[in-house]
C-alpha cells in the first residue's frame, strides 16, 4: 500500500515535470516553423496518387501538394518544405511528439483518432471509399454476390476490418487473404489466388490501370465505407490548425472562383470580383487572423494551382495522375454535386 502510494507520487511528479516542460516552451507551431525556415510535413511510405517519388527523387502527389500549399502560404515558397516519410505505425506519434508539423497522408478521419490521440483532423482533401475489384469472367456484378469468396486485402488497416464487417452484415462468409504489401496482394489476385481484391477505390482504380489487361477486370459499384482523407495537426494550437484548414479551403475556393495557376496574376490585377480580390489579398485583411502575409492565398495558387488542377495532375488523367474520374464523385465541387465546399472567404 505504502509502496503503491509512493509510486503514485513519483508518477505524478514525473507527469508534472513533463507537462511543465511542454508548457514552458509556449512557442506556437507557426513560430517554430518560421524560426526553422522550413515546414516538416509528414507523408507515408510511397502510395500512388497521394505521395510518391519520381525517378528524379522528387516527391509528388495530392497530399504532397497540400504540404506544398501550406509551405507556400507561410513562406511564399513551396520548396521550403521537408517531406518526412513515416511508417503508419508511427504516424500519429511522430506528429504528437513534435517531429512533424503537419500530417498529410491519406489518414482516414475517424472519431476515435480525432478525439483520443491528441490530434485534430481538418478539411478532407480527398473522399475515398472501400470497394472490390473482380475478374469480369467471374460474372460477378455486385459485392453481394461474393458469397464464400476469397478476398485479398492488405493487413493492419481499417480496410480489413471493414471487409469483416461487410461479410458479417450480409452473411457472405468471405474469407480474408491478408498481405503486407499491395503488390503481392495484386499478384496473388492476378494469379488466381483469390476471387476479389478489396481496397480504397482510388487505389483499386490506380492499380487496375496497371494490370496486364485492365479490361479483364471490373470495380464493383458498392462502396463499403466512408474514408474522408484529411490532413491533421496537433491538438491545441488553433492558429496552426486554421492555417492548414484555410490553405485547403483556399484551393477549393480558388477552383470555385475560377482562379488557376496560370491566371492568378491576371485575376489579382484585373478582376472586378470582390471575392477574388479579397482572397488574393488585393483588398481587405483576411490574412491577419492567420498571422501570415497578405498574399498567402495568392502564393498557394501560384505555387500549386487550385484543387481541380491538383486533382487532375495527380489523381485524374494528368501525366503523373492515376486516372480516376472526378465527375460525379464525392470529390467534385459542391456545385457539381460533390462534397468539396469551402466556407466563404470574407
Amino acid at each position: 500500500m505504502k509502496l503503491k502510494s509512493k509510486l503514485m507520487t513519483v508518477t505524478a511528479a514525473a507527469a508534472i515535470l513533463f507537462s511543465g516542460a511542454t508548457i514552458a516552451s509556449a512557442e506556437t507551431t507557426l513560430e517554430t516553423v518560421q524560426a526553422r525556415g522550413h515546414l516538416r510535413c509528414q507523408v507515408g511510405p510511397p502510395s500512388p496518387g497521394f505521395y510518391n517519388l519520381d525517378s528524379a527523387g522528387a516527391w509528388y502527389g495530392i497530399d504532397v501538394a497540400i504540404c506544398e500549399s501550406v509551405a507556400a502560404a507561410i513562406f511564399g515558397d513551396k520548396t521550403k518544405l521537408e517531406i518526412q516519410s513515416v511508417s503508419s505505425q508511427q504516424r500519429f506519434t511522430a506528429l504528437a511528439n513534435g517531429d512533424s508539423d503537419l500530417l498529410s497522408r491519406t489518414a482516414t478521419w475517424t472519431m476515435s483518432r480525432d478525439t483520443q490521440l491528441g490530434i485534430d483532423f481538418l478539411q478532407p482533401n480527398f473522399y475515398d471509399g472501400q470497394g472490390f475489384t473482380v475478374r469480369k469472367d467471374s460474372g460477378i456484378t455486385s459485392a453481394l454476390e461474393l458469397k464464400g469468396a476469397k478476398v485479398c486485402v492488405t493487413t493492419g488497416t481499417t480496410t480489413e476490418l471493414n471487409l469483416t464487417d461487410f461479410s458479417r452484415q450480409n452473411d457472405l462468409n468471405i474469407s480474408n487473404v491478408t498481405f503486407e504489401d499491395f503488390n503481392v496482394r495484386d499478384d496473388t489476385y492476378l494469379n488466381g489466388g483469390c476471387d476479389a481484391v478489396t481496397a480504397d477505390k482510388s487505389a483499386l482504380a490506380g492499380n487496375l490501370a496497371n494490370f496486364p489487361v485492365p479490361a479483364d477486370h471490373l470495380i464493383l459499384p458498392e462502396t463499403l465505407s466512408k474514408e474522408p482523407l484529411a490532413p491533421a495537426v496537433r491538438h491545441g494550437d488553433n492558429q496552426w490548425a486554421d492555417i492548414v484548414r484555410w490553405s485547403v479551403y483556399a484551393l477549393i475556393n480558388a477552383e470555385e472562383l475560377g482562379i488557376t495557376q496560370a491566371n492568378v496574376d491576371d485575376m489579382r490585377s484585373t478582376s472586378k470580383d470582390p471575392n477574388v480580390l479579397r482572397m488574393l489579398g488585393a483588398e481587405g485583411d483576411l490574412n491577419t487572423g492567420l498571422g501570415l502575409d497578405k498574399d498567402w492565398a495568392y502564393n498557394i495558387i501560384k505555387a500549386v494551382g487550385n484543387y481541380g488542377e491538383i486533382y487532375e495532375a495527380y489523381i485524374g488523367g494528368g501525366e503523373q495522375g492515376i486516372g480516376i474520374n472526378r465527375a460525379g464523385s464525392l470529390n467534385a465541387l459542391w456545385t457539381d454535386g460533390g462534397l468539396m465546399y469551402s466556407p466563404p472567404m470574407r
Binding site: P45, P46, S47, P48, G49, N52, L53, D54, S55, Q84, S85, V86, S87, Q90, D181, N183, V184, D186, D187, G206, N207, A209, N210, F211, Q320, G321, I322
Partner: peptide
C-alpha cells in the same frame, strides 16, 4: 521501415511511382 530511403526503400518505391505502379518483382 522507419522512413529512410535506403536501397530497399528505393527498390520498393518504384512500384508506387505512377508510371511504374505495381512493378515490384
Amino acid at each position: 521501415i522507419i522512413g529512410l530511403f535506403d536501397i530497399l526503400g528505393m527498390l520498393r518505391s518504384i512500384s508506387k511511382d505512377v508510371p511504374w505502379v505495381g512493378l515490384h518483382k
